[in-house]
């Protein structure tokens, strides 16, 4: 009985596209549209970089963009980690068997998804220091705009991550929890060792998507006095009336965060293949 079946693996490769299902006319139409689009973009980019970008100005304002970039990167990394931790708790709350816990988690998600992030940022940035107005002590936190930014982004994105993780948990077959529990593992151990790793993989695309949105949401922080990338843009633009020089720098700054982020997500996807498709 032993070993004789070891070549019997159930891994089935999905049917690769052999061209039989494509339509030649559609194919050429696609190529034409993509080609046209690319040429237009490249032409525009060429004109912008040769005629509309002031490279002396670019050099002069570059350090300010670097400062803003570093600040945004810090805020992003801290909020990202915190929102994933908080999001896991929200997700666990959303699948709780206890109605009280579940409805609190649901209410949390409804509030933070149902009101604008801009509004939530003001609640924290203006609302919390307002509690100190009547007290003799001054508001104790010095760099409040940074802290408020992290708190606001974390609370907001914990709601989105939480929904993604909830979906990921729901997609794990019930048999996994049954198998873990029937081995004598506690609920917490089963969740941590068996359910959440699978839920995280199920939710990976949605979580990665949300992290990219988190990066872009930092552009709102200008309203709570964070010197982020867009605020530097507006400053440079209103002082020099040059549009394209700072636009190019802004694009580079955001892409310098979101492109590596996409790479990290794809790396995690590969790492959680668990033997699928290769070996």
């Amino acid at each position: 009985m032993a070993g004789t079946y070891s070549d019997e693996t159930t891994v089935e490769e999905p049917q690769t596209d052999n061209g039989l299902l494509t339509d030649r006319r559609v194919k050429w139409f696609g190529i034409a549209v993509a080609g046209l689009f690319t040429s237009a973009v490249l032409y525009l980019l060429y004109r912008i970089l040769t005629d509309f970008v002031d490279y002396e100005l670019m050099q002069a304002v570059f350090p300010r963009f670097v400062d803003a970039y570093v600040l945004v990167l810090q805020i992003f990394i801290i909020s990202s980690v915190l929102s994933l931790i908080a999001g896991t708790l929200v997700g666990l709350g959303r699948v709780s068997r206890t109605r009280f816990t579940r409805s609190i988690a649901t209410g949390y998600v409804e509030f933070f998804r149902g009101t604008p992030l801009l509004f939530q940022l003001f609640i924290i940035y203006l609302g919390i220091p307002a509690f100190w107005r009547s007290s003799p002590q001054p508001f104790p936190i010095e760099n409040w705009s940074f802290a408020a930014a992290v708190i606001g982004l974390t609370l907001n994105h914990a709601a989105y991550s939480g929904e993604a993780i909830k979906g990921g948990i729901t997609a794990v077959p019930d048999g996994q929890m049954e198998a873990a529990r029937s081995l004598g593992m506690s609920y917490i151990d089963s969740m941590r060792e068996v359910i959440l790793p699978q839920a995280a993989r199920n939710a990976l695309a949605a979580l990665g998507n949300d992290q990219v949105i988190l990066v872009k949401d930092t552009s709102l922080l200008t309203v709570i006095a964070v010197r982020e990338i867009m605020s530097v843009f507006r400053n440079v633009n209103s002082n020099t009336f040059d549009a394209w020089t700072p636009i190019v720098l802004v694009a580079l700054a955001y892409l310098a965060i979101t492109l590596p982020l996409g790479k990290i997500v794809r790396y995690l996807e590969r790492r959680s293949a668990w033997g699928e498709g290769h070996e």
Binding site: M1, S6, V11, E276
Partner: peptide
């Protein structure tokens, strides 16, 4: 009878 499959993932097994 699976001494040689210790490092395999479930989806690599029949």
């Amino acid at each position: 009878g699976l001494g040689d499959q210790a490092e395999s993932y479930p989806n690599q097994l029949s």
